[in-house]
C-alpha cells in the first residue's frame, strides 16, 4: 500500500515526496519513523504513511540529491536523520508552489463559487 488514508487514498497518491520535503523544511532534520508519526499527528490519523512507502521515497529523494543524511548516537543505537540540501530547499519551494496551483485548479473545478482566490 502506498499511503494509507481514512478517505480516498488515490487522492493522496503522488504527494508523498511533497509531504516529506515540507516536513523537513519545517523541522530541520527528521528520521524515518518520526516522519510517519508526525504525519499521523498533523492529520489526526487521517493520513498514515506506511513504512513500505516512506523509505523508498526517502531513498529516492536522497539519491536525487534533495536530502542529506546525518547519523547520531541515540541511547543504545545509531539513528539516521534526513535533512534538506540546498537543492532540496529550492525543490521544496517548487513542489509546494505546484501543489498550491493544483489545489487552486481543483477548487475552481470542484467548487467554482468558493475558489481560493
Amino acid at each position: 500500500m502506498y499511503i494509507c488514508v481514512m478517505g480516498n487514498q488515490k487522492l493522496f497518491k503522488g504527494s508523498l515526496q511533497t509531504i516529506i520535503l515540507k516536513l523537513l523544511a519545517q523541522n530541520d532534520k527528521m528520521y524515518g519513523y518520526e516522519i510517519t508519526q508526525k504525519v499521523k499527528e498533523l492529520t489526526k490519523g487521517e493520513l498514515k504513511i506506511t513504512e513500505g512507502a516512506l523509505y523508498p521515497a526517502l531513498h529516492k529523494l536522497e539519491a536525487d540529491g534533495l536530502l542529506d543524511v546525518e547519523v547520531a548516537k541515540i541511547g543504545n543505537r545509531l539513528r539516521k536523520y534526513y535533512k534538506l540540501t540546498e537543492h532540496g530547499t529550492k525543490e521544496t519551494a517548487n513542489k509546494l508552489a505546484e501543489m498550491q496551483e493544483f489545489l487552486k485548479t481543483m477548487q475552481h473545478l470542484v467548487n467554482p463559487k468558493f475558489s481560493l482566490e
Binding site: Y31, G32, Y33, E51, L78, R79, K80
Partner: peptide
C-alpha cells in the same frame, strides 16, 4: 542502522 532504528 536505519532498519534497526525503525524496528526498535
Amino acid at each position: 542502522i536505519e532498519l534497526k532504528d525503525h524496528i526498535i
